[in-house]
Simulated scan of single mutants.
Amino acid sequence: MTLLRKPAFSALLALGLLSTGALVTPARAQQSTLFSGKLEAEHGASTHAHGNVMALYYPGAHVLRYTVTWEGLSGPVTIAHLHGPALPGHDGPPEVTVRGPYKSPLSGSVMLSSQTEQDLLDGRLYLKLHTQKAPGGEVRAWLAKSE
């Protein structure tokens, strides 16, 4: 290849990569949905704990990224779950275990099954924090879409 052709070839290659990147970028850039919830005493638990959950759901990857903050629990969190399907005021079984270490703020991500994803989108999913004094759950937060 001559020196005169190299710049033209490089420009053509760069243009091809840019156009390919332009086509790939929108497909890779996915919109997330914001969910939030307020931690409140689990029915039957006598606690003055409070806190919040903020979560972003990425539907293309089926990933929920979350941050949970709390204060005033009766003791350390022993386990945390996403529960559902259930409507507010009702109980659902644990669907996903949220991994520790269980210290506020707790941040991480979980991959959701198609059923759990649907429960989240339908407003039928909540986060529950369990403690030694309240093994059935001390506080829960319903995950609702935030505008």
Rank of each mutant, 00 (worst) to 15 (best):
M1N: 13
F9A: 13
A11H: 08
L13H: 03
L13G: 00
A14Y: 07
L15M: 07
L15W: 08
G16E: 05
S19N: 04
G21T: 02
G21V: 00
L23F: 13
L23K: 11
L23C: 13
V24R: 00
V24A: 06
T25H: 14
T25I: 11
P26S: 01
Q30E: 15
Q30T: 14
Q31T: 14
T33M: 11
G37E: 00
G37R: 06
K38V: 15
L39D: 01
E40S: 15
E40C: 15
E40F: 12
S46G: 10
S46D: 09
N52S: 14
V53D: 01
M54Y: 12
Y57F: 15
Y58M: 12
Y58K: 09
Y58G: 06
P59K: 05
A61M: 12
H62N: 13
V63C: 05
R65H: 13
Y66P: 00
V68L: 14
T69A: 02
G72V: 02
S74I: 09
P76E: 13
P76I: 12
I79M: 13
I79N: 12
A80K: 06
A80R: 10
H81A: 02
H81S: 02
G84W: 05
G84Y: 04
G84H: 00
G84N: 03
L87D: 12
L87E: 12
P88C: 09
P93L: 14
P94V: 03
E95D: 09
T97D: 10
T97M: 13
V98D: 00
V98W: 03
Y102F: 10
S104R: 04
P105T: 04
G108K: 10
M111N: 15
M111K: 15
L112A: 00
S113F: 03
S114C: 08
Q115Y: 05
Q115T: 10
T116L: 02
T116C: 05
E117M: 09
Q118P: 08
D119L: 06
L121V: 07
L121Y: 05
D122Y: 09
R124F: 01
R124A: 08
L125T: 05
L125M: 10
Y126L: 04
K128G: 07
K128A: 10
K128Q: 15
T131P: 04
A134M: 11
A134N: 14
P135F: 03
G137D: 08
V139C: 09
W142Y: 10
L143A: 03
A144V: 12
K145W: 01
S146R: 13
